[in-house]
Design a protein around this nucleic acid. Structure first.
Lengths: 237, 237
DNA sequence: AATATATGTTTTATATGCATTTTTACTGGT
DNA sequence: ACCAGTAAAAATGCATATAAAACATATATT
């Protein structure tokens, strides 16, 4: 049987209204439609989404738990504010969590999953070659790689932390602190090494490689920030 | 001026009603007042807490994000169901996160914080000696130790994951899967070694020790479970 | 002039009411 | 006695209405 022709526009949309608002709001934040620090006015947003404030507040409560918005008491909600130290903190958490995810995936994931990961890297290689390292392909591709390793860990304690919390914050930071430092070919090589270790089922080594990969990215950013700080200081005085 | 005599009962209670309900509900779940798998009826609970369903649903949304309750659509909320594999998954996540927290704390935490940690272990030692390893002192003390190391990491990405999410789940599991395996003196020795490494500011070693400590606890539980499974099988057929 | 105060408006937090879905209980049949 | 089908009851999801708090503006006071 084929897919239903769907004459009347949309399939009734899945989940509750609160679910839908949650997803749309998260996308609005992560995509930069709502900018960091911006105040969120419930009546306005509810109108914009065409729902009442009930489901909206439900969604806000969830987003607050995921640290995408802040809700000081009696002062409404604001999109989370970003800072450089917070980004560094994120990288430390990623180093620990993704290292473990990588180890577990190397030990447990079915062969086919690892093969698919290798195939993904082939795609990325072509993408980098074709678009001469287009930033979008590069960044989204990188996150995609990490995302799929988290999934492959098959650990329901790790997966939500990484996929539902940290990665969305990462996307937000990518949008904001644009200067990501171009290290696409290097990163791709490191990704290859990680997958190789996973295919050899060497969990400990795969974890080590992943941790070094993330630590390297973190130091790269720290250096960029330090340079930026110096530039700002000299240009100011 | 001294403290206000407080003639009229309670200080107006901090935060919103939703905050208070959230805290009370979390405590009810973690303490076992609401048992795992139990259905949560909104009208009944709202009445019990003396609030309307609005703040209650707000609290439920937050608790769901923390995996303390599950909310299948149109079927209300249930206290999360526990399982052995989930507990093992938790330990893997803890191994990664607390290892990193330990490393960061060793590198950054002020001297006084580390001294306080050492002092805490002195208390635990006395507690174990006095009460001959009373389970309560042992378990709560252990979690307290890990809790304070998480805090000492001073990493706002790690701290909420550990202190707001994982540790509450751990308390819940402790209540349910009682047989924790008595290894109080061993655990205390390991705690000492960890703090020693931290006071020497050896982050890498402190991380390694913490990871081994948690991995050991996990294997201990795995063994207990395996034995339990065997006993159940032989006794069944 | 600057601070403090008072008032009015806006916005959040909470309660109540309504519609839809699920669950439960009951009836009838095999 | 057990299962299917149906109808009543209850619970969830959503919308609206009310109360309380915070913010902004303007006025008074030092």
């Amino acid at each position: 049987m084929g897919a239903i022709p769907s004459t009347n526009s949309l399939p009734p949309a899945p989940g509750t209204l609160a679910d839908q608002v949650f997803l749309r709001l998260r996308e609005a934040i992560v995509s930069g439609d709502l900018v960091p620090g911006e105040r969120i006015l419930e009546p306005a947003l509810a109108a914009r989404f065409g729902v009442s404030r009930g489901p909206l507040r439900d969604a806000l409560a969830r987003l607050a738990e995921r640290h995408l918005i802040e809700r000081p008491v009696h002062q409404g909600a604001r999109v989370v504010t970003l800072s450089f130290p917070k980004l560094i903190d994120l990288y430390h958490a990623r180093e620990a969590l993704e290292g473990m995810a990588c180890r577990l995936a190397a030990e447990r994931a079915p062969e086919a999953t690892l093969e698919a990961l290798a195939a993904l890297l082939d795609e990325h290689e072509q993408g980098v070659a074709l678009h001469a390292g287009a930033a979008y392909v590069q960044d989204e591709g990188d996150l995609d790689f990490h995302f799929r390793i988290a999934q492959a860990s098959e650990n329901p304690a790790l997966i939500p932390i990484l996929c539902d919390q940290l990665y969305h914050l990462m996307r937000l930071y990518r949008r904001t602190f644009v200067a990501q430092g171009r290290r696409s070919t290097t990163a791709l090589r490191e990704h290859r090494a990680i997958v190789d270790a996973m295919r050899e089922r060497d969990g400990a080594f795969a974890e080590q490689l992943m941790r070094r990969h993330i630590a390297k990215a973190r130091r790269n950013i720290e250096d960029l920030y330090a340079a930026q700080l110096r530039a700002a200081e000299t240009g100011e005085e």
